[in-house]
Nucleic acid binder design. Sequence first.
DNA 1: AATCTTTATCGTAATATTGCAATATTAAAA
DNA 2: TTTTAATATTGCAATATTACGATAAAGATT
Lengths: 108, 108
Amino acid sequence: MGATKTDHFTDQQNQIASIAKALGHPARVAIIEHLLKVKACICGDIVNELPLAQPTVSQHLKELKNAGLIKGNIEGNAICYCIDEKRFEVLKNYFSKIITTVTKQNCC
Amino acid sequence: MGATKTDHFTDQQNQIASIAKALGHPARVAIIEHLLKVKACICGDIVNELPLAQPTVSQHLKELKNAGLIKGNIEGNAICYCIDEKRFEVLKNYFSKIITTVTKQNCC
DNA sequence: AATCTTTATCGTAATATTGCAATATTAAAA
DNA sequence: TTTTAATATTGCAATATTACGATAAAGATT
């Protein structure tokens, strides 16, 4: 096994899981934080910032992009990556709902 | 390789990543939603709700518990699992900060 | 005590992820 | 056009995750 049974779950469950999964690695969290820190979105220096090789960073960027958490604009031979807040809002709203529901329940 | 280089990242980055990772599987999202739906936290029926075998569900519950997303109270021979909202709040606040910072930046 | 119920753990197979060296690609610069 | 710079892709090894059957553990029931 090892293959996730995605077809048994709802679209929303799969969506939430896939966004969360993309953030489920410290390198990808670090990339997000770096993009947030350098106000302009000039990238490529991410490789210098992180303790990871260029192909590894490129791979992580790809996953963040696939998850819709960042977007990349081609600018000459460089690529300008920056955060796309939409998916973060999806997660934030989802968690907000959970939190308010749980606090109302007053369970355990 | 395949081993995440956790020691190269900050504690916060590792914490965010590990909570997100725990939610990075649709089965675990489904478990959270089920715990939310059945107001009381009587559990064990999760196995009947999900298309997964009992050991698999037990494993997912363990990961959610390790991540601090749920807590389990022993009640006789059954166990009462329920959501612990604290970690959800950590993620929610973290995402809120990202969202407000990004919208101020007005990048790309 | 014997049995049932509920949950956890072990062992293992299938698959996915992580990381990087080597290489390819693409566009700017010389 | 050759070189340089930036990023992506390929291929592969190491490790992690997912799933489940078999079995164990622990309390309830008979």
